[in-house]
């Protein structure tokens, strides 16, 4: 006499491992970070000291935190713009390519497969002012050399380019997948009506690609706001504090200075920022993404 389990219950049973995994490694750390943000804890004592809102007061009066926040927004703006719109442009071009599309797709996707550490090492060499690739190219073209990531004014922009390069392939693939689902008849009808390529782009492609643009904008924004690996590998926040981002400062505060509570307060701040921006983006695009073919 076996116990009969309904189909619905089986569903719940199969979901349990995922929920446990998510709860243990996502929700619990989030909950613990909220608790820690009200404590002073070096990561080694058994009893963290309750300090209320002191960690928040401290971060909001910290000039480096302010600078890191500004840097994070600047970085996100550059990285998201570069990634999203370059990827859209390439994807549109790729829709016109029929024969070697798979090869091009692989070609663009390759940087996304490489790890951030490998990418960081390669780009550090490319940017090196004395013997790096980019200055060698400028030298061949008889152009003045640049200090790239060694220049406080350029460094963050250089890091953003590196991230955009890494993320481009994934964005191209997603855009391409979306663009290829747009029915060909729309373009045929537009051509019959005498619409130019530019008009087809403005009136057909972009409106119908809006859901994918929304998705990628949100996705890339989150990725940009939480940037850490690229900064860690390329500049370690330098030169000076030129490339400090909130995530990098959070890491330094928690793990270099052993201020887990203050680091958690920063994490919470970043979480709220991401939440607000994501909600705004979703609301903004919500009305515009209802598409019916």
């Amino acid at each position: 006499m076996g116990v009969k389990i309904s189909r619905e219950k089986w569903g719940y049973i199969f979901v349990i491992p995922g929920v446990l995994w998510y709860g243990l490694f996502m929700l619990y750390p989030m909950y613990y970070a909220i608790i820690l943000s009200a404590h002073r804890w070096m990561g080694v004592e058994t009893n963290p000291l309750f300090v209320g809102l002191d960690n928040f007061k401290e971060i909001f009066t910290d000039s480096l935190f302010y600078k890191s926040t500004v840097n994070t927004f600047y970085f996100t703006f550059i990285s998201v713009s570069l990634t999203t719109f370059t990827a859209l442009f390439i994807a549109i071009l790729l829709t016109k390519v029929i024969k070697l599309r798979a090869i091009y797709r692989t070609f663009y996707f390759l940087p996304s497969v490489a790890g951030v550490v490998a990418v960081g090492i390669i780009w550090t060499w490319c940017y090196q002012p004395t013997f790096g690739l980019f200055n060698r190219i400028l030298q061949v073209l008889h152009l003045p050399p640049s200090r790239w990531i060694m220049d406080p004014r350029l460094a963050l922009f250089c890091v953003a380019i590196t991230q955009a390069w890494m993320r481009l392939g994934f964005n191209v693939i997603v855009f391409l997948a979306g663009l290829l689902t747009i029915p060909e008849q729309f373009y045929d009808a537009a051509k019959v009506d005498g619409a130019s390529g530019f008009h087809q782009l403005i009136h057909i492609t972009l409106p119908l690609a809006r859901p994918i643009i929304t998705f990628l904008l949100i996705y890339n924004t989150i990725y940009g706001l939480t940037v850490f690996g690229e900064v860690y590998m390329l500049t370690e926040g330098g030169p000076g504090s030129a490339t400090y981002t909130v995530a990098y400062l959070m890491y330094e505060t928690a793990f270099r200075y052993s201020r887990m509570g203050k680091g958690s307060a920063m994490a919470l701040f970043l979480f709220v920022i991401i939440l607000v921006i994501t909600v705004i983006q979703m609301k903004f695009f919500e009305r515009r993404t209802q598409i019916e073919y």
């Binding site: 070096m42 480096l64 030169p239 000076g240 504090s241 270099r256 200075y257 052993s258």
Partner: peptide, 15 residues
């Protein structure tokens, strides 16, 4: 336990 943190603050002025 502030040595690393404060050393960085002074280093920031230097750099």
């Amino acid at each position: 336990g502030l040595f690393g943190n404060l050393e960085d603050v002074l280093g920031d002025a230097v750099v």
